[in-house]
Every structure is written in structure tokens, then in C-alpha cells.
């Protein structure tokens, strides 16, 4: 059996809110197999975003160990963690989070600026990624010139351009109409099946969750 892509052991996370301790996750064990497409569901405040942030190395656990793609990330320093994110992860955000002053292709190129890639090669790879999401003819458009669905597809191109092992998606269809949401979900499916990307997706949308191979439910900081 291969090692899991994500392996959380006894992970707790609590926040200090005005002198009160808010326990979000408690002694959670969580595994995601390599190559799977998992949806994480649960009501607001169930801790799913916190869990995603911990997996993505955007936040640190109060207790427990987190291993992602073979690296113990809960012990990494700030700089090493940033480097790890750049090399290992692709992010897909609910609000797309494209940089408004950069064109589609420049947005897609961003992660490659952190790797030793020559500018011509960078442009070539970014254009390839845009072709994968079907937006090669929009490469010189600015985000404001794109529809929501197109923006999210550019964001997906940005997430895959550096060939990451794990894609982390936070409500990727939350801001989209049904048709655009379906496009995006189909794209994620293709990335999972054909490019063998492991995907973990937080969602409220049962239609979106249906596309995943595994659906997990989180409630009050524990897996249901």
C-alpha cells in the first residue's frame, strides 16, 4: 500500500478569541490517499476551512502532526513552508483570487516565478496550462474582461502550471452559475483522472461533491 498523500494524526486546532479558547478541530485523524479526489463537506463553522488551511500549510495546528506529500509540514519554518507550498500545491479559491492587474497568462505564470524557469519557457508552460483549461484564446485578457467561470478556469491553470502533487480547492464553484460550475467540476475530474492529481475540495454544493470519489463530512471539528 502506498503512503497516503495527506496524513493528519491527532490534530487539534484552537483559536484564542478574546480570552476564550475556541476549539475548532479536536484530535483529528485524517488520511487522503494519493490520486483520490475528495470532497469535504459540513455546515459552516464545522472546521472544514481550518482543516484545508492546515493541509495547505497556511496555518499551523495547536497539536498533532501533519504530513503532506511525504513532508512533515507542521514543523517547517515560515520560509521553508512557503517554498514547500510553491513546489507541492496548487490552489483554487472560491473568489478565484486572480491578480487584477495581470493578464490571464501573467497570472498563470506567477507560480513559475518561484522556480528557476527561463521567461520563454515560463510563457510556453503558462500557455499550455491555459490550453488545458480551454482558454488559450483569452491569454492576454485581464480578469475583469473574463466571466466568473473563465476566471476560475484561469485560476485552475495557475494551480496546475507548476505540476503540483496536490490541488487544494476551497469552494471552487461557490461563486459560479450552474453551467460554469459544471465546466469547472469536469475540469477537476479530468485533472484527477488523466493527470492523476490528488484533489481535496471543500464545498457546500452536493452536486459538486458528487463528482468526488470520496465525500467526507465534518461536524463540530470531527469527522462524521
Amino acid at each position: 500500500m502506498t503512503a497516503p498523500m495527506i496524513n493528519l494524526r491527532q490534530v487539534s486546532k484552537s483559536y484564542d478569541r478574546g480570552g476564550e479558547t475556541l476549539k475548532v478541530l479536536q484530535a483529528l485523524d485524517f488520511e487522503v490517499a494519493s490520486g483520490s479526489f475528495e470532497a469535504l463537506m459540513g455546515p459552516s463553522g464545522s472546521g472544514k476551512s481550518t482543516l484545508l488551511n492546515l493541509i495547505a500549510g497556511l496555518d499551523r495546528p495547536t497539536a498533532g502532526t501533519i504530513e503532506v506529500a511525504g513532508t512533515r509540514i507542521d514543523t517547517l519554518g515560515e520560509g521553508a513552508l512557503a517554498k514547500w507550498r510553491a513546489n507541492t500545491l496548487g490552489f483554487i479559491f472560491q473568489a478565484y483570487n486572480l491578480i487584477p492587474v495581470l493578464t490571464a497568462v501573467e497570472n498563470v505564470e506567477l507560480p513559475l516565478l518561484l522556480a528557476p524557469v527561463a521567461s520563454r519557457e515560463r510563457r510556453r508552460r503558462a500557455e499550455t496550462a491555459l490550453r488545458v483549461v480551454g482558454l488559450e484564446d483569452r491569454s492576454l485578457h485581464y480578469p475583469r474582461q473574463l466571466s466568473g467561470g473563465q476566471e476560475q478556469r484561469v485560476a485552475i491553470a495557475r494551480a496546475i502550471v507548476n505540476d503540483p502533487t496536490l490541488l487544494v480547492a476551497d469552494e471552487p464553484t461557490g461563486d459560479l452559475d450552474r453551467a460554469s460550475a459544471d465546466d469547472v467540476l469536469r475540469l477537476l475530474e479530468t485533472l484527477n483522472k488523466e493527470l492523476k492529481k490528488t484533489i481535496i475540495m471543500v464545498t457546500h454544493d452536493p452536486v459538486a461533491a458528487e463528482r468526488a470519489t470520496v465525500v467526507r463530512r465534518l461536524d463540530k471539528g470531527s469527522l462524521a
Binding site: 512557503a82 507550498r85 510553491a86 513546489n87 490552489f91
Partner: peptide
């Protein structure tokens, strides 16, 4: 925040 998430350092 996005730039930091993508891996750009402080």
C-alpha cells in the same frame, strides 16, 4: 495573501 499562499516569501 494569494501571493503568499502561492509561495512568495515575506
Amino acid at each position: 495573501g494569494t501571493l503568499r499562499a502561492l509561495g512568495f516569501s515575506r
